[in-house]
Amino acid sequence: MTLPPADSALGQLMATLPRAGRVEWIGLRPKRDVLMHEVDEAEARTGVGLVGDRYASGSGKRGITLIQAEHLPVIAALAGHASVNPAWLRRNLVVSGLPLVALKGRRFRIGEVVLEGTEDCDPCSRMEAALGPGGYNAMRNHGGLCARILEGGRLRIGDAVVALAETTESRV
């Protein structure tokens, strides 16, 4: 994603966040066709993914998947549920307090880990089984963000999610 120039009005608006976010939930799926396992912390490896997650394969752009906590009640309502378990949604992190869309194309830090938001994390057909008929559509535009791991380390529940200052090189 190409961001507008940092000194433009739109660039300044897009770079301004009201506050840091917070990691609320972490999940790993060790193999195909099993539910996510909730954990208190995880190790992220550069260019690989989260240790213990089946997608820790080195795909790069999708090293970690994130979903916004504030979207969970919306997804639940649209799918006809009182609430949804984050494990059903197949994302690694649930984050609250800041709009994940603002991290697309940007670098950010969670705990020891530096990430770069790469693309929207669109829902897959498995949402029909997880949420019932219409589950796929309930998650559209609420699926979260995929991120590449630039610097590995540990991340934990309660860690701050902080956008990093943009540099000229990171905007290209």
Rank of each mutant, 00 (worst) to 15 (best):
D33E: 12
R91G: 06
A130P: 05
A138S: 07
L35T: 06
D120W: 13
A9C: 08
L103D: 02
L155I: 04
P4E: 10
V162S: 15
G105Q: 03
W88C: 02
T167D: 14
V161N: 07
V114M: 09
E151A: 14
L115S: 11
G134E: 05
M14G: 15
A160S: 05
E38A: 15
L98E: 11
I75S: 03
I64L: 08
I26C: 03
V39P: 11
R154I: 02
D122R: 12
G144L: 02
I64Y: 14
L10V: 13
S96G: 03
E43P: 06
R171Q: 09
T65N: 05
R148D: 11
L17G: 04
L100H: 01
P99D: 10
V84P: 03
L78E: 12
A77R: 15
G135T: 10
A15M: 01
V23M: 07
A138K: 03
S83N: 09
V161Y: 07
P133M: 09
S170L: 09
A15L: 02
L28G: 01
R156N: 08
D120E: 11
D33C: 11
N137V: 14
L98V: 02
P4M: 08
G63I: 08
A163M: 08
A163D: 00
R29D: 00
F108R: 00
A42S: 08
G117W: 05
E119K: 09
T167M: 14
L3K: 04
V51E: 10
G105E: 07
T2N: 04
E112P: 04
I67T: 05
W25T: 05
V39G: 09
E169G: 13
C146L: 10
I149G: 01
I26K: 01
A42Q: 03
V161D: 02
L89T: 09
A44M: 06
V114E: 14
G52C: 00
H81F: 00
A69C: 05
R90P: 10
A165N: 13
G49Q: 12
M139A: 12
R62C: 04
A6S: 10
L3G: 06
K61C: 15
R29K: 14
R106M: 14
P133W: 13
P5A: 07
R22N: 02
D120K: 12
W88N: 05
S57Q: 15
I26L: 04
M14F: 11
R90W: 12
I67M: 05
A102E: 06
A138G: 08
R29S: 06
E112R: 02
A165T: 07
T118S: 10
L28C: 04
G158R: 00
R54V: 00
A130Y: 06
A102Y: 08
I75V: 08
A9V: 13
R148P: 15
S96H: 01
H142E: 13
Y55H: 15
G80E: 14
A165G: 15
S83Q: 10
M127A: 00
L13N: 13
F108D: 01
T65D: 01
P4W: 14
A20L: 13
A77K: 11
L131P: 07
K31V: 00
V51N: 06
D7T: 15
M14N: 13
A6Y: 07
R32S: 05
C121R: 06
R32A: 14
W88T: 11
M1K: 07
V48H: 06
A147H: 08
E169M: 12
G117V: 13
V101G: 06
